[in-house]
């Protein structure tokens, strides 16, 4: 039945993106600037979570160093701004390039390992990036680097207006989502899925999954790097803390919380994680006392994360 098919596969992401698109309207009507800034921050992290969800869900690659790309993208923008280069057409491709190279090199080494060993080796590379950032004393070292402004877009100030910046972030998220969905549905995506299920069979029919995995790893790194470049612009500040393993762990938690079977699960996870954190910390300073058990309950009673609970079955 096409209608139930639509409900199962399309309804949730469509509702999700429509709701996100209505946030600027809400902010305009109720003159609520905070909601807008908060939503921008959520969507930036959602882009990073989405990219992690892509390699995690499709290829079972649990990268525990994914925050490194947030940091690399952010530092690319921050360091160029420090040298008075504000043009996004220069700094964003620079961020992409840096992340692609880092992902290609570390991915080629990490993908020799599997399972927990992969988790830990990606952590190792993440930590190396982190400590490298702390040693950049010319760019603030441990304390980070303040950018005195935001990127420009062919000389215009699209980045500086909160509303237009929100649409830019929203557009990036939507584009990344549609792109990854397309990739997942292609032959490339099917090879990745096949490699996750049974690598030996795939090799038996003459496909070496390594190159596919590495390409997916680089794609994810680049998208997370874009999120980092946006993050630097939002905070107008870049620091090694962007790359800490806590942030990498948070991204994994977001993906698993949302539900790993679908790409939009990561977006839902990021929204749920950050909104819950914000709401609970408004009630009590000890919000983790509630948040922690809540995560445990989700695992114990909602198999397949929030999406699993919505759909009433594990994806």
């Amino acid at each position: 039945m096409p209608t139930t098919d639509f409900l199962k596969n399309r309804a949730v992401p469509v509702v999700l993106f429509v709701a996100l698109a209505l946030i600027p309207v809400y902010a305009q009507v109720f003159d609520d600037r905070f909601v807008m800034l908060f939503a921008t921050r959520i969507l930036i992290l959602a882009i990073a979570a989405l990219s992690l969800g892509f390699i995690l869900g499709l290829g079972a690659m649990v990268s525990f160093g994914h925050a490194a790309y947030l940091g690399l993208g952010a530092y690319a923008v921050g360091i160029l701004a420090y040298h008075d280069i504000w043009e996004a057409w220069i700094s964003f491709p620079a961020a992409i390039l840096v992340c692609a190279v880092f992902a290609a090199v570390t991915g080629a080494i990490s993908l020799k390992t599997r399972g927990v060993y992969f988790i830990m080796i990606t952590l190792a590379f993440g930590q190396m990036a982190y400590y490298t950032a702390t040693s950049l004393s010319a760019y603030g070292g441990d304390d980070g680097l303040t950018m005195w402004g935001r990127s420009e877009f062919f000389g215009t100030s699209v980045f500086s207006n909160d509303t237009s910046f929100y649409w830019l972030v929203f557009g990036t998220l939507l584009a990344a989502f549609l792109f990854l969905k397309m990739v997942a549905a292609s032959r490339f995506g099917r090879v990745l899925k096949g490699a996750k299920q049974n690598e030996a069979r795939l090799q038996a029919i003459g496909i070496d999954p390594f190159a596919y995995r590495l390409t997916a790893f680089v794609i994810a790194g680049v998208i997370a790097g874009l999120a980092g470049a946006l993050m630097a612009n939002q905070a107008e500040f870049v620091a090694p803390a962007y790359m800490s393993w806590h942030r990498s762990g948070e991204l994994i938690v977001m993906v698993v919380l949302g539900g790993m079977g679908y790409l939009h699960g990561a977006i839902i996870g990021a929204v749920a994680y950050l909104v819950l954190e914000e709401v609970l910390s408004g009630y009590t300073q000890h919000w983790r006392l509630i948040f922690g058990p809540l995560l445990i309950l989700v695992v114990l009673y909602a198999r397949g994360g929030i999406l699993g609970a919505i759909k009433g079955r594990a994806p």
């Binding site: 919380l257 922690g292 995560l295």
Partner: peptide, 8 residues
């Protein structure tokens, strides 16, 4: 995810 909840 669950043991992360325990940590928090």
């Amino acid at each position: 995810l669950a043991t992360f909840g325990v940590i928090l």
